[in-house]
């Protein structure tokens, strides 16, 4: 595990020494502050809309950070040839995959905390309260959803050599799951066979990211908390997908011939 943690540390260092995170944070912060300072149509419940838009921005920003950071990890190591001195140390390819995953996941976790801290300060100033349990659940669910996204992108990074191609394909897949994932089974029910069956299979195969996304509505509408058991179950569901995707990544990557 030592090598995995060392590699993860490097990924985290990369995140805070590059500009990507700061650009997204500043953009989100400016939009949040602007929205927070304007009183639209003298609407008392304007805070709800501000929360909705800001949470959407945080979700998008964290997705961009997760996809872009992860997509470049292994291809950049190969392109800049840093992978050779790295693998010439007592490091296995499995540890490299594990370290990259952990690093990206933790880095996204840190970015999420910064985003939500800012969000909580702005919304808290408007609402005059800070529902910590709700925040914890939203961050927890989003972080686990990002784990699936990162594992998906990591698999893509060993299948596609260009990070941009991988990022585009992964963004399309993630958006498709978020928008259509929850409707596939209904769509399957009205389709003739074999298309209906294929859609049903797809429904049960894909990781349902939209389930994690839906939790944000509880924060917007001040709904009741999720059960803590459900939170753990969601984490286990995500962990299962992460495990499968990481094994697939390792299987592909260990067969790759790295040309010096």
């Amino acid at each position: 595990m030592n090598s995995v943690f060392c590699l993860a540390g490097i990924v985290i260092k990369e995140l805070y020494r590059r500009k990507d995170f700061y650009v997204l944070f500043v953009l989100t912060a400016i939009i949040t502050l602007l929205l927070g300072s304007v009183n639209f149509f003298h609407e008392d419940k304007i805070v709800r809309y501000v929360k909705d838009i800001c949470l959407l921005l945080i979700w998008l920003s964290s997705l961009v950070i997760a996809v872009v950071t992860t997509a470049r990890q292994i291809p950049t190591e190969r392109e800049s040839r840093t992978i050779f001195p790295l693998l010439a140390k007592p490091v296995t390819r499995g540890q490299l995959v594990g370290g990259k995953f952990l690093g990206c996941w933790l880095a996204c976790g840190i970015a999420l905390l910064v985003f939500y801290l800012f969000f909580a300060v702005v919304v808290g100033a408007k609402e005059g309260r800070l529902p910590l349990s709700q925040y914890f659940q939203v961050i927890w669910m989003q972080w686990w959803m990002l784990a699936i996204v990162i594992a998906m992108v990591l698999l893509g990074s060993v299948l596609f050599s260009a990070p941009s191609a991988n990022a585009t394909i992964c963004f399309a897949a993630i958006l498709a799951i978020l928008i259509l994932g929850g409707h596939l089974h209904r769509l399957a029910a009205v389709q003739p066979s074999p298309l209906g069956q294929a859609l049903s299979v797809l429904y049960f195969l894909i990781p349902h990211l939209e389930w994690f996304y839906a939790v944000r509505e509880r924060l917007i509408f001040d709904s009741a908390l999720l059960g803590w058991g459900d939170c753990l179950l969601a984490a286990a569901y995500a962990a299962a997908y992460v495990g499968l995707l990481l094994v697939a990544t390792w299987t592909v990557f260990r067969r790759k011939i790295l040309t010096v």
Binding site: S80, R81, T82, F84, P85, P90, V260
Partner: peptide
């Protein structure tokens, strides 16, 4: 590889 040191030809190390 525990007792090896390896210097590859023209490698660019982590710039950050």
């Amino acid at each position: 590889r525990q007792r090896i040191g390896y210097l590859p030809e023209l490698t660019y190390y982590y710039k950050f």
